[in-house]
Write a protein that binds this DNA or RNA. Sequence first.
DNA 1: CGCAGTAGTTAGAACTGTCTAACTCTGCAA
DNA 2: TTGCAGAGTTAGACAGTTCTAACTACTGCG
Lengths: 123, 123
Amino acid sequence: MQVNESIEDYLEQILIQQEKNGCARSVDIATSLCVTKASVSHATKLLRENAYIHMDDDKCITLTPTGREIAERMYQRHRVLAQFLMRLGVAEDTAFADACRMEHDISAETFSAICRHAEKDWD
Amino acid sequence: MQVNESIEDYLEQILIQQEKNGCARSVDIATSLCVTKASVSHATKLLRENAYIHMDDDKCITLTPTGREIAERMYQRHRVLAQFLMRLGVAEDTAFADACRMEHDISAETFSAICRHAEKDWD
DNA sequence: CGCAGTAGTTAGAACTGTCTAACTCTGCAA
DNA sequence: TTGCAGAGTTAGACAGTTCTAACTACTGCG
């Protein structure tokens, strides 16, 4: 299995819920990502098989160190990109939505450059 | 057919070749996008069926007005985004490669904001 | 106890985008 | 004329992502 956009989104969402509630539930992931429970079940099966997540007996999902590494990279990108776009004058909702897609596409070099500028005031 | 990332890439590449040579050829599109001729053939079939491109008897591909509109939007985004990233300090090659993916992801609002800042000097 | 609601899984299908392999067609050169 | 090279197409396969529909399992209430 290769880690692609969809997989990164699942991992990031699991991180967010894990931080908030201690662990993530399939049904909440489905709601947040606007997909069906079946899609989540399919994705979590893959993620389990590849040791990105762990699911205990009561279906509580937590990230393994490997999964967490990817999830935190995505989550950090998401926040920094959104902040950066807002600094450029983009409305918060749009900034978060666009950041959610951009986070998968940019190279480490571009992300570094954006980090260097995300704190600045330009206007 | 919905216009997605892959379709946008084909249209943009056709525009670039059309500007350069008067029309585009499947084999050159394949080389530029690093896909097989079969993939191009499949894509151009869809693009023809949906009136985004026209292919004359000697296989010369040109954009219809509808196709051109999308292609020009993508090409403009590509150039502006790449310029913007270079202003942030990203190397040219990386800037163009990242811009090529980002161009599909950003909203009109974010693109406007980037346009407003692409010309500025920050450093 | 029985039933309803909630959570999760599985099977099967569809769609997209790509690939390889095999084919046609055309033009050119020995 | 023959045959090769280049360009394009078609068929069939595969992987990824999603869906619907039907299922199981658990919980809690009347």
